[in-house]
Structures are given as structure tokens and as C-alpha cells.
């Protein structure tokens, strides 16, 4: 499942790291209909994303179906240095999970 999240993290000024990530997920709202069958496509979306820096939580995202498909996430945090590990993991409304980590460059 490692390919479900792409992470880039690098050091900026003042010991601050910038993170950019794409989480591959359909993010179905449950409102869309399949054009061929006319059936409603079941809701399937990420509910929670955890971002950890060296095992310590830096950011938790609570998401609903209003977040776009293949969600993009960018944030910044302090007290980081090159070589540190940044881990991102998510859980979706059907109990699916994925996680991936990257080294801060």
C-alpha cells in the first residue's frame, strides 16, 4: 500500500520543514451516480490523516467527502532537521488504511 501516498518533505528557513503529499484515493461522496447503471456510487473517502515527525504527531486532518479526489496536502512545522522521518497514514470510512514515510531532505 506504500504507493497510496506520495510524500516530499524538505527543510526551509528557521528549522522549518515543508511537506507536500498526495494521497491516492477515490474520495467518493456517495452523491454521484454511475452514468451507465444509474446506481448511486457508494461513499468512500478518507476520514482521518495523521502526520508524524519522528513518531510524534504534528498534524491530524479530519476529512469529509468534500475533499477532492486524490487529496493534496501541504503543511509546515518547526523543530525539524534534514534526515528526520515524516510518516503519513490515513484511515477511510470503510476501514481501509495506508501509510508511507519519507526522509526530510
Amino acid at each position: 500500500m506504500a504507493n497510496n501516498i506520495k510524500i516530499r518533505a524538505w527543510m526551509g528557513d528557521g528549522g522549518r520543514a515543508t511537506v507536500k503529499a498526495i494521497l491516492f484515493h477515490p474520495m467518493e461522496t456517495g452523491l454521484r451516480k454511475d452514468k451507465a447503471t444509474g446506481k448511486v456510487i457508494e461513499a468512500h473517502y478518507i476520514t482521518e490523516v495523521k502526520c508524524e515527525h519522528n513518531g510524534k504527531n504534528v498534524l491530524t486532518c479530519l476529512w469529509g467527502p468534500g475533499v477532492s479526489k486524490n487529496p493534496f496536502l501541504s503543511f509546515r512545522f518547526k523543530d525539524a532537521k534534514a534526515g528526520d522521518t515524516l510518516k503519513i497514514s490515513w484511515v477511510d470510512n470503510k476501514g481501509g488504511t495506508a501509510s508511507n514515510s519519507a526522509k526530510i531532505s
Binding site: V58, T60, C61, G66, V67, R76, D79
Partner: peptide, 22 residues
Amino acid sequence: SPLAASYILSKQADGFITGRIK
């Protein structure tokens, strides 16, 4: 449903978030 997303910041995190919404 008006709520799109909520980001819980730790003390380490900056007040800066980018995301894509519908």
C-alpha cells in the same frame, strides 16, 4: 454538507495548510 475538512495543529505545526476541496 458545509464542513470540508478540519486540520488539528500540534504545537510544532505552523498556521499554514494547503488542500483541495470540492
